[in-house]
Design a protein around this nucleic acid. Structure first.
Length: 853
RNA sequence: GGGCAAGUGGCGGAACUGGUAGACGCGCAGGUCUCAAAAACCUGUGAUCUCACGGUCGUGAGGGUUCGAGUCCCUCCUUGCCCACCA
């Protein structure tokens, strides 16, 4: 074969991959004294559709970094596994009877084949399945730790219930309030659930976000989700009753302005306080609210509704009688499920008060000036304030509030809170939006919860030496008609002896949610085969925390919050050494694509079109079609299949194009023409590198030498910062210059192939072998840029006159300001004729700016 | 409604802490090679005025700060994403 003949890159891929595997190149090393780099990808749910270009974008980025770090001398841990419990396999089993294990195994094999075809450097010795008993044994073990700590408890919680299918539904199975399968309207059914007390960790989950190298938007979302707010709880006495009504408010200073109270329809006090003549109306309202799903209840947000209970609460400060209403804009799940409504200073209360003609009393005024406060006072005169045209929700100065008149809001809050504490009817309170985690599912394909219900002993944990509690075989995968998991139908499995008293017991039949396995997989990757403990403590110390975690932004809240929660529990128990599991987090952007719809409204795929460029496509009969950039979708024939791309262009072109498209975190559209460009670049690389070497090194071109070191510096910096698009462009510039100069020295060859290797490992290794080496470039050291050479360059420095570039001067790096000024004035002399130089600004190495009149 | 991003050529995108806007790639145009085409290679390519030299305009719109603004400040418009009655 002539060396300049360009091979089929897909064949090169296979050859190199076989060689890497044979050499065991991706095994995780553990060299004493070496720096470590733990690079984690969000492991996929192996769906039947196979790998998606969105997966591969993140995996490519992490693989580039892992290869680079290895070349820099790090011990790298780069594992991959399968988040294999989950709904699709279970639903497939329901409709076909095929056991989810079989489906899962098939899908995993396909995913693995696809991942390997891209040359990702995973250490498959670390592979794990969340569905394997060796793994979920420890998921169950961790659950038992949570149980022992009192962080797991039973509660009755509403679920989405399809009355026709007689089964509970996940939110994603509910479409516009209807069952996805049979389209009957769904109901809310209360059911016994296992809960995890994540709220006990709310403060720490919030505080420990500080110091993490995460995208600010992700931190924001976590903070908002946790939703910490400071305020006060206040107990209101009820007129003619010995019961009290407790509310939470962030503005206790507005208590004099409370003109009505609102309970959520589900509030336990409602039946007790409802007046006989109001009962019918109240019951009807409660029934209507109960029939609504969460979705519907929030959809109807615009128009607030409510009903008066007939009861009155008493304002502890001035004894005012305050009517008590119920309304579904107050949520049972937040605060105490009851509020004091202050329409003058809260938008929702204002809307409600306007609708039901309830009084408005202003108790806070702008503190801007004395006169303004006075004006408001006089307006407020009789207690209700007809002249307010919208609620005033900001801080200000208290008015119409005997105890705190004239105090600014923060002081007023303090004084009221102290007064409440003194009278023992309330006090300072911190509330969170975060709710406890509903941890059980009435499903088959999940980890069994390792508990046994005993008539005498209550809930008893399965002893550790009996873990794992294996998933039994079942006849049917559909939940039982009572809403229980299919496991409830396996009597032989359910009926056990109580481990404590030996009496008859029954296994818990709920399973864990899909999140469970992903809450700790990053720990098991470190020591995946350990039969004695879930992770060896020494190995944990050596590898944790994860240095870089790459995955989709759709997990910015739930997965990342749940995993942090479990990690903190394990930390408190002394099982892990780091407070936080993921040091640095990066989200890859979404890969969109162009969809093409012709004049008849039919979607056309790429192979049915002639695509000139991203914005210009024609059908075979010449009709021009304007594309739309959207999420990839099968029905719009816009899904890009990695297999086809790899077969046609090779893995390196695929990897590099995904990186060249734009910044990693941005969403960006896939353009078939773009990958052609990268393919062309790689062919030029081949022709250059496999071509004849150029003359002796002694006659080396200074410009090339400088460019070589600039490229080393640029690529190194860009890889460190995950800016792969500009790293690739730097390599293109380098190659263009090498070709232009007809240069191919041994040194350039080595530097170029080494820098390109993390991005295009197959082609570079093949060329490196052709150049006479037996080892992979990944095993070689990363080149260093020579600072002396970098600073020896002559700089082109623009000279501006009144802000416009007129001439340029040339100077060495670090030339002093005076020299530059002199050179600039000389160079610009022709442009300055007849003008007076007013000022000269010199920015060394950058520019000279002359101001002239 | 709230929060967070972002608006740069025909397209994807570059541009360090304010310092030559449009790197690199795609597309397009012209050329070389060829019987021809493809591939490959070379040249050009923001708009506009000019035979040319060169000039003017130009980073969503309008204003401001500055010797100098894609970058900073104010007002507005548009798009995307996330959350949505959180007391």
């Amino acid at each position: 074969m002539r060396t300049s003949e360009i091979p089929d890159f897909h064949e090169v891929d296979k050859k190199r991959q076989a060689a890497w595997q044979k050499a065991g190149l991706f095994k995780t090393p553990a060299r004493p004294g070496a720096k470590k780099f733990y690079c984690l990808d969000m492991f996929p749910y192996p769906s039947g559709d196979g790998l998606h270009v969105g997966h591969t974008e993140g995996y490519t980025a992490s693989d580039i970094l892992c290869r680079y770090k290895r070349m820099r001398g790090f011990d790298v841990l780069h594992p991959m596994g399968w988040d294999a419990f989950g709904l699709p396999a279970e639903n497939y089993a329901i409709s076909t009877g095929v056991h989810p294990e079989i489906t899962t195994k098939k899908n995993c094999e396909n995913f693995k084949r696809q991942i390997d075809s891209l040359g990702f450097s995973y250490d498959w010795d670390k592979e794990l399945y969340t569905t394997s008993p060796d793994y979920y044994r420890w998921t169950q073990w961790i659950f038992l730790r949570l149980f022992e700590k009192g962080l797991a408890y039973e509660s009755t919680m509403p679920i989405n219930w399809c009355p026709k299918c007689k089964t509970g539904l996940a939110n994603e199975e509910v479409y516009q309030g209807r069952c996805e399968r049979c389209e009957s309207p769904i109901e809310r059914k209360k059911i016994r659930q296992w809960m995890l007390k994540i709220t006990a960790y709310a403060d720490r989950l919030l505080e420990d976000l500080e110091g993490l190298d995460w995208p600010p938007s992700t931190m924001h979302m976590q903070k908002n989700w946790i939703g910490r707010s400071e305020g006060a709880e206040i107990k209101f006495a009820l007129a003619g009753s010995d019961k009290t009504l407790t509310v939470f408010t962030t503005r206790p200073d507005t208590i004099y302005g409370a003109t009505y109270m609102v309970l959520s329809p589900e509030h336990p006090l409602v039946p007790e306080i409802t007046a006989p003549d109001r009962k019918a109306a109240i019951d009807a309202y409660i029934a209507a609210a109960a029939g609504k799903s969460d979705m519907e209840r929030t959809e109807l947000e615009k128009d607030k509704t409510g009903v008066f209970t007939g009861a009155y609460a008493l304002n502890p400060l001035n004894g005012a009688r305050i009517p008590v209403w119920i309304a579904d804009y107050v949520l049972t799940t937040y605060g105490t499920g009851a509020i004091m409504a202050v329409p003058a200073h809260d938008e929702r209360d204002w809307d409600f008060a306007k609708k039901y003609d309830l009084p408005v009393i202003q108790v806070v005024a702008l503190e801007r000036s004395e006169s303004q406060v006075t004006t408001h006072k006089s307006q407020a005169g009789g207690g209700s304030l007809g002249t307010m045209d919208k609620p005033f929700c900001e801080e200000g100065v208290a008015i119409n509030s005997e105890l705190i008149n004239g105090l600014k809001t923060p002081e007023a809050v303090k004084k009221i809170t102290a007064w409440l504490e003194e009278k023992n009817i309330g006090g300072a309170k911190v509330n969170f939006k975060l709710r406890d985690w509903v941890f059980s599912r009435q499903r088959y394909w999940g980890e069994p919860i390792p508990l046994i219900h005993c008539g005498t002993c209550g809930v008893v944990p399965v002893p550790e030496d009996q873990l794992p509690v294996l998933l039994p075989k079942v006849e049917k995968y559909l939940p039982t008609g009572t809403g229980e998991s299919p496991l409830a139908g396996v009597e032989a499995w359910v009926a056990v002896k109580c481990p404590r008293c030996g009496g008859p017991g029954r296994r818990e039949t709920n399973t864990m949610p899909q999140w469970a396995g992903s809450c700790w997989y990053y720990l098991r990757f470190i020591d995946p085969k350990n039969p004695k403990v879930f992770i060896d403590p020494a190995a944990e110390k050596a590898w944790m925390p994860v240095d870089l975690y790459i995955g989709g932004a759709e997990h910015a809240v739930l997965h990342l919050l749940y995993a942090r929660f479990w990690h903190k529990v394990l930390y408190d128990l002394g099982h892990v050494s780091a407070k936080e599991p993921f040091k640095k987090m990066v989200h890859q952007g979404m890969i969109l694509s162009y969809s093409y719809r012709d004049s008849k409204g039919v979607y056309r795929g790429y192979d049915e079109l002639e695509i000139r460029e991203a914005g210009l496509a024609f059908t075979k009969d010449g009709e021009e079609i304007k594309p739309v950039v959207e999420k990839m979708s099968k029905s719009k024939k816009s899904v890009i299949n990695p297999d086809e791309i790899v077969k046609r262009y090779g893995a390196d072109a695929f990897r590099m194009y995904e990186m060249f498209m734009g910044p990693l975190e941005d969403s960006k559209p896939w353009d078939m023409r773009g990958i052609e460009g990268i393919h062309r670049f790689l062919r030029r690389v081949w022709v250059w590198a496999a071509g004849p070497a150029s003359g002796p090194e002694a006659a080396e071109d200074e410009e090339l030498k400088l460019l070589r070191h600039q490229t080393i510096a640029k690529v190194t910096e860009d890889l460190e910062n995950l800016k792969f698009n500009t790293a690739i462009s730097a390599l293109m510039i380098y190659l263009n210059k090498l070709n232009e100069k007809g240069a191919r020295t041994r040194q350039d060859l080595e530097v170029f192939l080494t820098l390109l290797h993390p991005l295009a490992p197959h082609i570079t290794d093949e060329l490196w072998e052709m150049a006479g080496s037996g080892e992979s470039l990944m095993a070689r050291p990363w080149p260093e840029a020579d600072q002396a050479i970098l600073s020896s360059r002559r700089l082109e420095i623009p000279v501006q006159i009144n802000g416009k570039v007129k001439t340029r001067i040339y100077a060495g790096e670090g030339a002093d300001a005076k020299t530059l000024e002199k050179a600039a004035l000389e160079s610009a002399a022709a442009h300055l004729q007849g003008k007076t130089v007013v000022k000269v600004i010199v920015v060394p190495d950058r520019l000279v700016s002359i101001v002239a009149k």
